[in-house]
Amino acid sequence: MIRITEQESKYHNIDQMEVLDILKGINNEDKTVPMAVEKAIPQIEKLAAAVAERMKSGGRLFYIGAGTSGRLGVVDASECPPTFGVPFDQVVGIIAGGDQAIRRAVENAEDDDAQAWIDLQEFTINAKDSLIGLAASGTTPYVVGGLKKARENGVLTGCIICNEGGPVVEASDFPVEVIVGPEFLTGSTRMKSGTAQKLVLNMLSTTVMIRLGRVKGNRMVDMQLTNHKLVDRGTQMVMNELQIDYKKAEDLLIRYGSVRKAVEAGTK
C-alpha cells in the first residue's frame, strides 16, 4: 500500500507548466492544509493538555525527527526561549544526524532506530518529560525507535504525522494525524506536510506556554529583549499596562529585564 504522502500528484507534466500555473497549483494545494489541521484539533487538544500538565510538574518537551520534520522541531524549540522566556533546555529539538543535518542532509541518519534514544540520553530524559515524534510518513525508524524506548521509560509520547496509522502512531500515547493528501510535487513532504507540521507545532507550543502562564492577556510578557524592536514592543506593553510615558516605561523595562517584572515593579 502506498502511503498518502507518497501518492502521485494530481498535477501532471509540471515540468512543462508556465511559472504562473506552477505557482497557482502550489497555492491551491496549500489552501487545503489549514482545513486538514482543523480536522485534527481534537487530537492536538489532547496532546497539548497532556504536555502542559507534565511541564507544570517540572517536565520538559522534546521533539525528534529527520529531514524537514526534524528541522521544524528544532525551529519550534529554538523559538520558545526568546518568545516565552523559558530556559533553553525546557523545549529541545533533536534532528537525526545531529545539528549538522540542519543545513546538510546526513545519509542514512533517519534509518537508525537506536540513535534517537542515544541522542536523548545526552539530556537525561526521564519520566517527567514529553517526547513528540515528527515524521510526515509516520514510519521513520529514527522516530519510531525513540518513541518506543521513551514509552518504555515512562516518558509521555506523541507524534505529528501526515499519514493514517503506522508505527509512529502505535508508539505514541497522543498521536496527531494531519492528512493533507498527495503533494504538488510527488513525495515532496517539505511542502504541504511540512506546512501542516509547522502549523501544528505553532498551535501546540503556544497553547502549552499559555497554560504555563507565559502569556498575560494576549501579550508575550516574558519575551527576551534581544533587539531594539523587542525593547520597543516591551516598552509599549509596559506603557499601556501602567499608563505611564515611554521614557518611564523603558527605564522600568531595562531595569527589570522583562515586561512582567517591570509591570510588577511599577504597580508596587
Rank of each mutant, 00 (worst) to 15 (best):
E107I: 12
G93Y: 01
G257Y: 06
S57N: 15
D129Q: 11
G25A: 13
G257S: 10
P87A: 12
V51K: 00
N13P: 05
T32H: 10
A48D: 11
I95T: 07
R260W: 05
V144W: 05
G165Q: 07
N108E: 15
M237L: 10
E45Q: 12
W117C: 01
M220V: 00
L147T: 03
G67K: 08
I95P: 03
N163W: 06
L47C: 05
I244L: 03
R151I: 02
Q100R: 07
M239K: 12
A49G: 12
T186I: 14
V37D: 00
G138A: 06
L242N: 04
Q115W: 03
Q90S: 15
E107K: 14
V92W: 02
H228Q: 12
P42K: 04
D232V: 11
K216G: 01
Y63C: 15
F84Y: 15
S9F: 12
I41L: 11
L253P: 03
R71K: 13
L212E: 02
L201E: 03
L20F: 12
G25K: 03
I26Q: 05
M239I: 12
Q243I: 06
G65K: 01
G166Q: 08
G181Q: 14
L199W: 08
L131G: 09
A109S: 15
R214K: 14
K24E: 10
E45G: 00
V168Q: 07
P81F: 00
S258R: 05
R54A: 08
A77I: 02
Q90W: 10
F62H: 09
E122H: 13
S9V: 15
D173Q: 09
P182C: 13
L131M: 13
V178R: 00
E53Y: 04
H228E: 15
V208A: 00
K46H: 10
S78G: 09
N27G: 14
V19G: 00
V51P: 00
R3N: 14
D15F: 12
M203D: 04
D99N: 12
Y142T: 02
V74W: 04
S205K: 01
E38I: 11
N27K: 07
I102E: 04
R103T: 13
G154Y: 10
C80N: 04
R104W: 14
H228F: 04
N13L: 15
V215I: 11
E250A: 11
D119S: 09
S205Y: 06
S69L: 09
M35T: 10
A50R: 02
